[in-house]
Write a protein that binds this DNA or RNA. Sequence first.
DNA 1: TAGTCACAGCGTCACTTATG
DNA 2: CATAAGTGACGCTGTGACTA
Length: 107
Amino acid sequence: MAVTGDETETGSASDLTACQQHIPSSSLPQGVAGATSAHGSKKSAEDATQKRELRLMKNREAARECRRKKKEYVKCLENRVAVLENQNKTLIEELRALKDIYRHKVE
DNA sequence: TAGTCACAGCGTCACTTATG
DNA sequence: CATAAGTGACGCTGTGACTA
């Protein structure tokens, strides 16, 4: 495919990111040139296919990015689960110790 | 070693949501 | 409201682990 530079920024601040710092992702590799072949009949068809290819390419990138973010988000949640489980364990221990102390006092 | 299964990653389509 | 960006769902492909 012959496509050249005309880049679009993907500067969206989406959510999912209640979790972690974001890594800036790669910019789009290619774009579409203004292929101005002067013959009008063909031109609109060419334009259409070019438009479509550009759309597919952008969507491909978007899908990749989307999956990347989702994966990162899941990893982040898993980390959080681990941390909370640890905290929970610690608190249970603490509670047990306090109960013990109390029991001895009462006796 | 060939066949099978589960899994991950990808591209595309269709739909939703954000933005100018 | 038109267009761009984001995302869920589907089908396809490659890969590693397992089994007969």
